[in-house]
């Protein structure tokens, strides 16, 4: 049995679900699944222009693992470009830097630092809570 993969830390998930080619001369079929950690690797290395040895610390993985994820991300995007495939983002093996939730009933924000804590609002005990990162919100309030 292979060794279990360590979870990769990402700051925020991508704000889109995927990309689709348009105006393709042939019928575009098939899709490429871009993992969240691959999106994050591309973002850190090519958008934030961060050296790999710094970026790997941010994601809580070794430099070699970072390079592997980055390589895989680039190959997936290249194959999607050349073969006119759809890019779809999927969850992958990640956890978020900040786990802030918002209660849908009383609108107070809170963290759940320990997975053993019940996933309810600590103020009004509502079970209707949502992860704030999933809405693409950068507001920490």
């Amino acid at each position: 049995m292979p060794r279990r993969k360590s979870p990769r830390k990402i700051v925020a998930p991508p704000v889109f679900k995927g990309y689709k080619p348009f105006g393709s001369s042939k019928v575009c079929d098939g899709e490429v699944e871009l993992l969240y950690e691959e999106y994050e690797a591309i973002k850190l290395a090519d958008y934030d222009l961060m050296p790999h040895h710094e970026a790997c610390h941010l994601m809580g993985i070794s430099r070699a693992t970072f390079a592997r994820i980055y390589e895989s991300a680039r190959r997936k995007i290249a194959s999607a470009f050349v073969e006119a495939k759809t890019i779809k983002t999927v969850y992958g093996n990640v956890y978020f830097d900040e786990n802030w939730f918002r209660c849908n009933d009383c609108e107070n924000a809170f963290t759940i630092p320990n997975p053993r804590i019940k996933r309810i609002c600590p103020v009004c005990r509502s079970q209707s809570i949502q992860l704030m990162n999933s809405t693409g919100s950068t507001n920490n309030k």
């Binding site: 900040e98 009383c106 609108e107 107070n108 924000a109 809170f110 963290t111 759940i112 630092p113 320990n114 804590i117 600590p122 103020v123 920490n140 309030k141």
Partner: peptide, 16 residues
């Protein structure tokens, strides 16, 4: 404060 409390597993609640 956020990162320190997070590391010690303390739940933070922000009231509106």
């Amino acid at each position: 404060a956020k990162s320190l409390l997070d590391r010690f597993g303390i739940q933070m609640v922000i009231l509106k």
